[in-house]
Amino acid sequence: MLLSKEDVLHVANLARLSVEPSELQEIQDTLSRVLEYIDLLNELDTEQVVPTSQVVEQHTVWRSDQVEKSLPIALAIQNGPQVVTGMFVVPKILDGGGQ
């Protein structure tokens, strides 16, 4: 197994997904199998290869510092699952959180 159950739970926590005990085995198996397949890439020596993160050849694309109209508040918050006084409500924050 390329991925332990602890790995799965760690990654799930990073991604803010919960994993039910009943599905843990299946997830571990599937992801491990995909990672085993991905191991194929290790056939290649890429030591000297520059990574590609974008395929567009352009650079320094920017806009001038012009103010544009914001959304009307009604549209900005219309999809909010819970909204009070124009703000989105979230439940109690337990740890310090943030960055």
Partner: peptide, 14 residues
């Protein structure tokens, strides 16, 4: 393009 202004009504510059 939203305004960069401090102290406005919540979520009005979004």
């Amino acid at each position: 393009g939203c305004t960069n202004l401090f102290g406005q009504e919540p979520n009005t510059h979004t």
